[in-house]
Simulated scan of single mutants.
Amino acid sequence: MSTLEEHIDVGVPIDTVWDSLHRVEDYPRFVEGVREVRTEAGGRARLEVEADGRVRELEAEVSDRRGEGVMEWHTTGAPELVGSVSLKPIDENHTRVQARLEYDPGAIREALGGPKGFAQANAIERLVRSDLEHFKECVEQRR
């Protein structure tokens, strides 16, 4: 498994960021390739994802530790992805958003396509960085 960690600072209070993180209907606005997200009972979510010209449905289990500002998730089928988003207050009007993703590069390529080897790791890193930038824009515009 490979691990990727990225963070971004946003100019809104932590509670606003937490609420925005849980607006799954907005995910297509800031997560590249996500076309739709539906929540289900028991902390489950279904994501319709388009990658490399193909549409796939992924199912994930999601858990919250609101008191710690952490949302964790993992896919329940292939490809195996494990992730978390942690929020830390910088001050009363700024929050650091830390994203962590664990993945098997070969499984990602097989399931979703994309380049091989180091090029794929760079592509995934750019994708996560871009998603965080779009999340920041989305959250700060909502203010």
Rank of each mutant, 00 (worst) to 15 (best):
L58Q: 01
T95Y: 02
A41W: 09
V97Y: 02
R44M: 06
A123H: 00
V49A: 07
P105N: 14
R56S: 08
H74Q: 15
E140W: 00
R142S: 12
I108L: 15
R96Q: 02
K116C: 03
S86I: 08
G69A: 07
V139P: 00
A60V: 14
E125R: 11
I90C: 04
V49P: 06
E72W: 12
E80F: 10
V37C: 07
F135P: 00
T39Q: 15
G77T: 15
R143Q: 07
E25D: 12
I124N: 01
V97W: 01
N122K: 15
F118S: 08
V62Y: 02
G33D: 09
V97E: 01
E59C: 06
L58C: 02
L132E: 01
S2W: 04
D104K: 12
A123L: 04
L127Q: 14
Y103P: 06
V139G: 01
T76N: 13
A45Y: 09
S2I: 05
L4W: 10
P13S: 03
D104P: 05
V85S: 10
R38T: 14
N122M: 12
E50P: 06
S20Y: 05
R109Y: 05
G83W: 06
E57C: 06
T75E: 13
A119M: 13
H7N: 11
E125T: 05
A121M: 04
R44P: 03
L4M: 08
A78Y: 13
G11S: 14
R143S: 05
V97N: 00
I8V: 07
F118M: 13
L132N: 02
A99M: 14
D9T: 07
K136F: 01
F118A: 11
P89A: 05
P28S: 08
A41D: 07
R65K: 10
R143T: 06
E92I: 05
A60S: 13
A121I: 08
G106N: 15
G113E: 05
